[in-house]
Write a protein that binds this DNA or RNA. Structure first.
Length: 126
DNA sequence: AGCGTGACGAGTA
DNA sequence: ATACTCGCCACGC
């Protein structure tokens, strides 16, 4: 019960963001500094779509929000933006998991067990 | 209309 | 720990 609320959104400009995208970005902005949420978590929170849909939104409009706080469930940093993300994580104190042996070019992953944010038990208009 | 692709995720080998 | 498969769903060709 969510796939029928389609708004044609005619030629009027100013807001071309699909409602779903807007919600995803909204959640992304809620994530506290130093914490992260997975794509799947966001989707569950919204009770709509799935990880891939959230990922699509982030890929397209993520630049407008703290995109580094929305991560993959396995904690792997976003390919292509690893250094930028890493900078934010170190700055925010996000728990990271570095390999015991530091190999060159190896990038740390997020310590999901500690960094994952559940939503703080907040309510999201339900 | 089918088919491949993806800022995904969980399960299996 | 890595590799592969399958399920998922919106998009583009």
């Amino acid at each position: 019960m969510s796939r029928e609320n389609r708004e044609p959104e005619d030629g009027d400009s100013a807001e071309e963001l699909p409602e779903y995208a807007e919600r995803v970005l909204e959640v992304a902005e809620l994530i506290p500094s130093g914490r992260v949420m997975t794509y799947g978590d966001v989707a569950e929170w919204l009770e709509e779509g799935g990880p891939r849909q959230v990922g699509r939104v982030m890929a397209l409009y993520g630049g407008a929000v703290p995109w580094w706080r929305v991560v993959r469930a396995d904690g792997v940093l976003l390919p292509g933006h690893e250094l930028r993300a890493l900078g934010h994580y170190r700055e925010e104190g996000t728990p990271l998991r570095e390999a015991a042996r530091s190999a060159e070019g190896h990038v740390p992953r997020i310590d999901m067990a500690r960094a994952r944010w559940d939503g703080g038990g907040q309510d999201h208009g339900r």
